[in-house]
Design a protein around this nucleic acid. Structure first.
Lengths: 119, 119
DNA sequence: CCGGATCCAAGAGGATACTG
DNA sequence: CAGTATCCTCTTGGATCCGG
């Protein structure tokens, strides 16, 4: 239950989502996870330029928001898999809309991002 | 399985849009413009915390992308109005999706943002 | 009223080395 | 392999002043 009694005004839903996701990598991390469960090194490989520190930060934030799930397997060497929670999958319409608009603006049909599976 | 080995030169549409809009205010500026044409001081008032410099930067970037139109009236005092171009209006599905998901996550129906007019 | 120019603080995030 | 800890750079963007 959301307690908005502390708010002097009603929150804008758009701003709410933007506040959660407006940093350099969050959307792209989620895009990868729409392609299925991913291990840490897979995400690092799929997101050229991201550092381990930043990736971990983003994943922890998304986990704290209940958007991403972190599964740790007690193995040597360690194995950690990340996946979308049901809440996380709720942003699928946003990803689809971004994909559609981006395709228009690029005037390009093909796409290498994992979300293409959903089309 | 998506084969990404042969299409590294193909841009991801999602990343393309994210690259255009992932800064602190762009999405919110556009949200305001979906409510209709806006003058500078209206945008400043609608976006608490934004500075004139930052607002101008965002608007110039969006203008350069062909997303926003800037109309200057030769009056004293000056009047400048910003509006969405047809290309800019193409992101309406993104805004609608953000709004829908944000409403779910907030567990809140009402909304004070201009986009509500489109529902 | 609009917005350019400057200055500056804060923080995001990359590179690297290291631990379990 | 996964993640942490430093260090450090660079960008973002806020505050202010000024000019058209």
């Amino acid at each position: 239950m959301v307690d908005i009694s502390q708010c002097s005004e009603i929150k804008c839903p758009i701003q709410f989502v933007v506040d959660l996701l407006d940093n350099k990598w969050s959307i792209l991390v989620l895009r990868e996870l729409f392609g299925g469960d991913r291990r840490t090194h897979q995400l690092l490989a799929a997101l050229p330029g991201i550092s381990t520190k930043t990736l971990t930060q983003r994943l922890r934030e998304l986990e704290a928001q209940g958007i991403v799930d972190r599964q740790v397997y007690a193995e040597i060497p360690p194995r950690v898999e990340y996946s979308l929670t049901p809440k996380g999958r709720q942003i699928q319409p946003v990803m689809a809309a971004l994909h559609q608009v981006g395709s228009q603006w690029l005037e390009q049909e093909s796409c290498m991002c994992p979300l293409i599976r959903d089309y």
